[in-house]
């Protein structure tokens, strides 16, 4: 089936990638405002949060949330881009309880602020530590366009997006 319901999470763009494993993986770029809504859509469609993580790039932080299906090799990747100076994003802990610790860890490592998070105490680092260990030094930061081939985020051709979102079943190429 085509995941046509992905429409409902206000995607900026959709792409299909193969680097996440056999079966179907869809990468969905959204804004941080629609994250909560998208999280709810994932839950309603029976996907669970596998993990979430951030990537420190020149443009800011690039967040990836991986949602997997319990029954089939099907996954959806939510991608959110944040700026360096105001890294704030709503917390998914209210919808997917598992997100709680993943976000706490992300806060430890990158200093990203998750609004409405139940408890942002340091999870892995000692509470006295100031360091954000996974932040890159600015010389080492690379632009996102260099490390992420574009077709993994935006569709390679215009047809892909329409095909994914169409309600009728079409053959995957």
């Amino acid at each position: 089936m085509n995941p046509h319901w992905l429409k409902t999470c206000d995607p900026l763009s959709l792409a299909e990638t193969s680097v996440w494993g056999k079966g179907q993986s869809v990468s969905v770029l959204i804004t941080s405002d629609s994250l909560l809504k998208a999280g709810q859509v994932m839950k309603d469609n029976g996907l669970f949060l596998d993990f979430m993580t951030a990537l420190d790039v020149q443009e800011g932080f690039f967040l990836s949330y991986l949602f997997c299906s319990w029954k089939a090799p099907f996954r959806v990747l939510l991608r959110v881009q944040l700026s360096h100076d105001k890294p704030r994003v709503p917390s998914l802990a209210g919808i997917h309880s598992g997100a709680d610790w993943h976000e706490r860890e992300c806060h430890d490592f990158f200093g990203i602020l998750f609004t409405d998070h139940p408890n942002l105490d340091p999870l892995l680092l000692p509470p006295e530590m100031e360091l954000r260990p996974l932040l890159k030094k600015s010389a080492q930061r690379k632009p996102l366009t260099v490390i992420m081939p574009l077709e993994q985020i935006v569709p390679a051709s215009a047809g892909v997006q329409d095909r994914l979102l169409s309600a009728t079943r079409t053959e995957t190429a």
């Binding site: 996440w20 494993g21 596998d50 993990f51 991986l66 690379k142 260099v146 490390i147 993994q152």
Partner: peptide, 23 residues
């Protein structure tokens, strides 16, 4: 450059490794 993910069933559950390369 690019990313890849691989998951394996370990004795405790789903092990996943996500790598990103800048070339």
């Amino acid at each position: 450059p690019g990313e890849a993910y691989f998951s394996v069933e370990s004795a405790r559950g789903k092990v996943g490794v996500y790598v990103v390369s800048d070339g």
